[in-house]
Computed example of a mutant assay.
Amino acid sequence: MALRLTLLASSRSSSVLDVRFGDSRSLDAAGWHEVQAAGPKLSHLAAAELRYCSPSVRCRETAHSLGLAPLAQPALRDCDMGRWNGYTLREVAAREPQAVQGWLADPRSAPHGGESMVNFIQRIGGWLDTRPANDGSWMVAVTEPAVMRAAVCYVLKAPPQAYWHIDAQPLAVVTLSGRAGEWSLSLES
């Protein structure tokens, strides 16, 4: 048997048009409603032996709302966007259009002074690969949607550009199984 890790994307803290880099706001009204409505469907996650979450407010609130009592993991924080933190993509693109184009085109670039996409994916993969290798154990982590996307890239050994083609909606669930360097992905229904 292999280790099983279920990733749950946090509920929302803003509308799609107001998503900000490094956003650590509390869940908004729609986010609270979504997590309460999904509670019965996600209640089985509380049976996991280990429960983690990204350190952001919205991830902690999502996890606590589901009764998970998670341990916050600094390694599961969102991508460090440097001086772009707190701004929307639209705001940054209006101020620094060439920097945004370069960032979207080259996963090794970090024009914002933070973390490149390659480094972000490697950080998340490093966290995955250091999970305790107890065969048959099950862990749950409530993460930022970006963390879920990075994990999927890492597990599938996809090129970093694939990150932009993965959509992690609020409360999306994906389960990974395996051990360091040998992961498989299962899609939940």
Rank of each mutant, 00 (worst) to 15 (best):
C153E: 06
G67L: 06
L27K: 01
M1A: 13
W103T: 01
R20Y: 02
L5Y: 01
A172P: 02
R149Q: 09
L45F: 02
P55F: 03
P70H: 08
M148C: 03
A72E: 05
G113M: 05
A151F: 08
A30L: 14
N85K: 14
S26H: 13
V16P: 15
P145L: 03
S43K: 11
N85T: 11
D135L: 14
D78R: 07
D167G: 08
S189M: 12
R95W: 13
L156A: 15
L8K: 03
D18F: 03
L71G: 04
W32D: 05
F21M: 01
S43D: 11
S11F: 06
R77K: 13
L76A: 04
M148H: 00
V155C: 09
A47L: 12
A69V: 09
V173N: 02
Y87F: 11
N85C: 14
L7D: 02
Y87W: 11
A146C: 07
R20I: 06
V155G: 04
R131L: 15
L3E: 13
L128G: 00
L17M: 11
R4V: 10
R60V: 12
V173C: 14
S109C: 13
L104M: 14
P159R: 12
S11A: 15
L27V: 06
A99K: 08
P97V: 09
L187V: 15
E188H: 15
M139V: 13
E96S: 10
S14P: 00
